[in-house]
Design a binder for these strands. Structure first.
Lengths: 133, 133
DNA sequence: TTCAATAATAAGAATTATTATTGATTTGAT
DNA sequence: ATCAAATCAATAATAATTCTTATTATTGAA
């Protein structure tokens, strides 16, 4: 017969990450799937995340408040991180052309693979909550 | 007369961070100063780093391999992080004008305070060590 | 079906980085 | 010298992540 148990949790982990734009943490994924898979363990989530990362199916988009944030959208794009609530938003707009990687590599004598642009500040919600920050 | 409350250790911690361009970790600072201050504790390093950060005298420039990296140069500039050895280099060149912060804020309805641009890849040294990576 | 090899798993221990607590000591204005 | 606030080291606590281990599931072959 076809495998059942094999892939379901793993698929669900990947699916959960890809289906959200919240740039979730491992803990978020775990909490999300616990209802559907009561015997899921956090270690399994971490293990699969590591595998998906090295397979290039998801990527890490930084650490916010000590927790790694994941993104199922592996196409390069910029982010905004709210220093209040930690929300991470996509900023899909071309700030820097991709050629800049090559340029930088040449100028500084490095092998540049990619770049990450992160804006920081307060999101709309936190702006109202803590005005004048 | 205003109190200074700057002990020698405290001065040394700030000085150590500002005097290097390696973007050190707390542990690095601790190891660095242990010879001069044998009774220094890692907790003191962390405590002072936190104070210097909130006073704006140093800043955090990201987390590499799970460790927070510090920079005594608070003027905005881009960085390069080597995925091999974790080295962090300054790239002092204007990639994005500062006005982009305001623009992004307007366009996306956010209060943007700053942005961080990080290039990733292999440094010269690691390039030779692991060719073709 | 039975078997062995392989891969996925949960649970929890271990590790690592960081923060908080505590109680003693030092500092500096008076 | 006095005294309150600042500073300190040591230690305990916390939080995120990784590692270990024993168990179970899957597969392909005999």
């Amino acid at each position: 017969m076809k495998r059942q148990n094999f892939s379901r949790k793993r698929e669900a982990i990947l699916e959960a990450i890809c289906a959200t734009d919240t740039h979730p943490t491992a803990e978020w994924v775990y909490q999300r799937l616990k209802a559907e898979f009561p015997d899921l363990s956090l270690g399994t989530v971490y293990r699969n995340i590591a595998q998906f990362k090295s397979a290039g199916r998801i990527r890490s988009v930084g650490v916010v408040k000590g927790q790694e944030r994941l993104d199922g959208d592996t196409a390069p794009h910029a982010h905004f991180v709210c220093s209040g609530c930690g929300a991470m938003l996509d900023l899909k707009r071309d700030f820097l052309p991709r050629e800049v990687n090559e340029e930088v590599g040449k100028i500084f004598g490095l092998e540049v693979e990619n770049h990450e642009l992160v804006f920081r500040g307060k999101c709309n919600h936190c702006m109202r909550k803590h005005p004048g920050a």
